[in-house]
Structures are given as C-alpha cells and as structure tokens.
C-alpha cells in the first residue's frame, strides 16, 4: 500500500485517497475551435508514462482536497507532493 503525503494533512495510507490520473492536462479554453482530433487528444489520449509520473490524488477520506503527487510508475516510489495552482490546468502552484 502506498504512503501518500497530503500537503494539508501529512502522510496517510493510500486507502484514504482516490486517484485522479495524469496531472497538468489543460481543458481547452475554446473547445468549439478544436478539430475532432485535437478534442480526442484532450479527452482520451494520455502520456501513460513509464517512470516519473505527475498525477492527481484526492484526499477523499480526509480533507477532500485535490493535490499532485510525483510517483515512479515502475517502482511506485513517491518523490513528493505538490499543491495545485487552483487554475483549470491542474498545474503545480
């Protein structure tokens, strides 16, 4: 089981969290201006990185806030957590 550090609550067991997938995916400002292929890329395609992966987690059983984690997807080792900017792009604050 992963030990995940919530930026607000500290280290907690993985069962307190829910997973939110790849971080840093920006919702297009004007979806109507995109081609079908660009919209599909935003909606469905993922980097699915093998190695260092920046991803979203939600402290569902705690403070219920979203934050980011950098984790290696092969070793599962977590190198750190980060707060989000609050903007729609889910990037690091």
């Amino acid at each position: 089981m992963l030990l995940i550090e919530c930026p607000w609550c500290g280290e907690r067991a993985e069962t307190e969290f829910s997973y939110g997938g790849e971080a840093g995916i920006t919702r297009p400002a004007d979806p109507g201006a995109l081609s079908d292929a660009e919209w599909a890329d935003y909606l469905f395609n993922r980097s699915n990185t093998r190695g260092a992966h920046r991803e979203l987690w939600n402290h569902a059983q705690g403070c219920r806030r979203w934050f980011g984690v950098e984790r290696d997807t092969v070793t599962y080792r977590i190198s750190g957590s980060f707060r989000l900017s609050g903007a729609s792009d889910n990037r690091e604050a």
Partner: peptide
C-alpha cells in the same frame, strides 16, 4: 489497482 502502474504488482488493499 486504481493508479497507473507498470510494476507487475499492486497494493495490499
């Protein structure tokens, strides 16, 4: 397991 992983193992829960 909910998270992305390539490690050929998962979590105990």
């Amino acid at each position: 397991d909910a998270y992305n992983g390539y490690g050929q193992r998962g979590s105990f829960q």
